[in-house]
Amino acid sequence: MTRLEVKRSMLASIVPGLASLGKKGLAGWLVVIGTLIVVSIVFMTLIAPWITPYDPSTRGINVGRPLTPPNPQFPFGTNDLGQDMLSRTIAGGSVMLQVAVLSVIICIIIGVPLGLFSSYVGGMLDRTTCLVMDSVYAFPGLILAIAIAATLGRGVVNMALSIAVVYVPSYFRVIRSQVLSIKETPYVEAAKSIGAKNRTILFKYILPNVVPSIVVVATVNFADAILTAAGLTFIGLGVEVDIPDWGWDLANGRRLLPSGVWWVITFPGIFIILLALGFTLVGEGLSELLNPKLAER
């Protein structure tokens, strides 16, 4: 199968799925709209190398006169280095998306097993983990991320790590509260009474019922990670200047804004908000759709 065919078959399976979601009322539509926003931005970022009119990296310096306002040649204007803002906006999501995906993966790898085991086993282990998690949770998230990022240094992986540390407690708390209630349900008791081992109970009876909440937390986590990543780059803890990035442009644009240059900050800003909004919509919609009580109807 060629790549195009794969894409086509994926589309074919996604589109009817989305269409049927629309029938589930407002929540369904939130998911549909959110997914459309996110997918289009991701797609735009992926094909950026082929569609950007100019090179968005440092090699594209002085393609136009610095600080040209939006005009037919540069629809989004240029920045103080003379780079095309349209090209930078098209390509600038890549770092953020990488950071967000990576941080969500790290969070799931650490937070989910921790939440499952700690709350299932209970006792001292649970109390200690809770204490640690709560103290991390109590910290203002962005400040903690900044502190960690400053220690670890620049780079996509380090940004993802510093964001993950902030979000692991959210996963932990959500999973823990779920496991604590599922643990007491008759069907877990029924599993015990048929002689199921703890491992079986955890993975066949508890985990499948926690997955919906994990999905919801992950989407919210995505949205927050985007904003935090933007924040980290904004204060200079992000990536090298060379790589086009909305966060970097945001910081740059803020510097230029007082002198009346509004276009450098506006367009990347809109896209950050759009991306975060997309993930939030998906999260809100899913949390309603996956709520087991509502699903019963």
Partner: peptide, 20 residues
């Protein structure tokens, strides 16, 4: 021992794993 003694619960709605 579980093979030889079993239980039937009160609430038929909650005694099954909803995802099984």
């Amino acid at each position: 021992l579980r093979r030889r003694m079993q239980i039937i619960f009160q609430d038929p709605y909650a005694s099954f794993n909803p995802r099984m």
